[in-house]
Design a protein around this nucleic acid. Structure first.
Lengths: 355, 355
DNA sequence: TTGAAAGCGCTACCAA
DNA sequence: TTGGTAGCGCTTTCAA
């Protein structure tokens, strides 16, 4: 038997240290620690005893070197604080954890440049796979990633070139929103989209224009793209309301725009019909409750992670694109003319004191 | 010169491959790639050319082995999808990125057992440091983490034993909420706390009881702890409202409880005053707008990350505890008796059609 | 300015 | 059943 480790530093014990103490080889320690078969029970017991006495923990940071896999996946989104992305993140993390992988998250902040840098870092870390909500205007598959051979699943927005993608049915979502509004008497509907640099924003805009035509709505479609602030939204709403054919309802392009629109409508006291893209917490408690197109971010994230792990398991079949359905959640804000919420709002002041 | 690498596989090129092509040693490649001084410009240029031609990227996964640091930090929270934690996550990730570190996030799902497992994994990965929102009932500093010597900063909830902690001024927050309600005429106030397994929930509960006494409010403090559902909250509200001295206002213990309470109040048509703990998006658009105790999750996360990096830079001074202030955001729901929102709610239906 | 050799902690491979 | 050896891809140390 060869004893290698004589060093005694302040660092944590290594397999060599354990081997020395247990009077076995490093390889045997490795076998025991990794629950590999073929170790005599008493040998294993001796090793385990030393492992516990020394407080040994396998340094997982050294394994990938030989194993070739880091058991790590990377997630790149625009802004982790946005509920849409944080729900995606939570879902991806859960899928990763189930499969004993860890998740490294990074915000690209909507900048293609940052995204490339972040991807390069992740690839440099040798993550086993990537889930990416791509920034910018439909770039091609990142060349750095391709060169590394790292499996990647694109989420929410497509990229040029063959790749696994999990998308959301934006045309269907917009159509359901418009049909809902039209069914409730609206004919003059405006669209407030997010920044057209985002593919989803463009796709929803185009769907809006197409459905506008399909449904034979009057006039040219009124569209105002972002990036939006409450001010830009307010200006659009005021302008559309002053037209000789004023809009009676609007559709917002995502959760950010919905928030601005709600504030602007409130501030300007513009009682327009509204269907928001993306569900949000407490949408049912606003007066009137807000009707939304719901895409399930957790389902999107889960699906993307699952597809990624299929690839990590060695599935080399052709890239797939999955389009996830959306669901219209009707709450009232897009309802018939003059309809109000029927339940009372929460009131202020002591109980029983009517206002 | 010794040429080691003759292997030609499908994997990415290594420094040895570059060295071979550029007719230099591996060490020189390392120098160039890491921008170390002492390389003749023409040599460097030759290396760079090969690096680009081969598409070489340094494998960062191999560096920690020698360097001892992984340039990775771990974040453990309860639920990444909860906006409170996702804002913390975004802030920590940002601080990490600024310092060229990557962030591994993990959800402990409120389970101390899971938390220990997650911490063990993170320590096994040799993360350089940890930010942890500890689960469970104020456990001691995790022994695994201590053994590893990994710097750790606890966030939002304290642990036994000396450690860096970033906490929020819960007593101050509760006091500000109660003083606000009392100033607006409320005397009979209930407290709906989250699960008492959470330290923050208990601390807020105790602060509530203490302030209740300080302010000489009548009767015993009415307190109902979670875990809550809309049903449990509804039951508490109904019970408190049927008392001979019915409550006129409630304080909720965190954002989760606030949501349930809003729904319950709406459903039961119970017009009680309300101050919520934790701000939330669109709190201003609910009728009446919801007054909240705001703790800035981004600031908490940033502070924790900054403290961690101070430690990573070698600061070995005594552990510190920082208590971050809260801020009462007055919006109306805790206001004077009978006060209503003065702006109109958003209405349904076409513009101009008054309802 | 450049290079050879050793080794970080672990695992694969083959030998005993 | 167990052990030795040779790396994984990089950086450190020291020598040239």
């Amino acid at each position: 038997m060869t004893r290698l480790s004589t060093r005694r530093t302040a660092t944590r014990p290594t397999m060599a240290d354990v081997a020395l103490e247990a009077n076995v080889s490093v390889k045997t320690v490795s076998r025991v620690v990794n629950h590999e078969p073929g170790v005599r029970p008493d040998t294993a017991a001796r090793v385990i005893a030393v492992v516990e006495r020394l407080g040994f923990r396998r340094a997982d940071s050294a394994r990938p070197l030989r194993l070739g896999r880091t058991r790590t996946i990377g997630l790149v989104v625009e802004d982790l604080a946005n509920p849409f992305y944080s729900q995606i993140g939570a879902a991806v993390e859960r899928e990763a954890r189930i499969r004993q992988h860890q998740l490294i998250t990074a915000s690209a902040e909507g900048s293609p440049t940052r995204e490339r840098a972040v991807l390069a870092e992740l690839v440099g870390r040798r993550v086993d796979g990537l889930v990416v909500v791509p920034a910018g205007t439909t770039p091609g598959v990142d060349p750095e990633v391709v060169a590394s051979g790292t499996p990647i699943v694109y989420l929410d927005r497509p990229v040029r070139g063959p790749a696994d993608m999990i998308l959301s049915d934006n045309p269907g979502g917009i159509r359901s929103a418009m049909e809902h509004l039209v069914a409730h008497g609206h004919r003059r509907v405006g669209f407030l989209g997010d920044d057209a640099q985002f593919w989803t924003a463009r796709q929803r805009r185009e769907a809006f224009a197409a459905v506008h035509q399909d449904l034979h709505l009057p006039g040219a479609p009124r569209i105002c793209m972002g990036p939006h602030t409450p001010a830009t939204v307010g200006a659009a709403l005021e302008s559309w309301s002053r037209d000789k054919d004023p809009v009676t309802a609007v559709i917002t392009g995502n959760n950010r725009v919905t928030v601005h629109t709600l504030r602007a409508m409130r501030r300007l006291d513009l009682p327009l019909g509204l269907v928001g893209y993306d569900d949000f917490e407490l949408a049912d408690l606003i007066d009137p409750p807000i009707t939304v197109v719901h895409q399930d971010p957790a389902a999107l994230g889960q699906k993307a992670a699952q597809q990624l792990f299929v690839r990590l398991l060695g599935d080399g079949s052709a890239p797939t694109t999955v389009v996830m359905p959306t669901r219209l959640i009707v709450r009232g804000s897009g309802g018939p003319h003059g309809r109000r919420a029927t339940v009372s709002p929460i009131r202020t002041g002591p109980a029983g004191q009517q206002v």
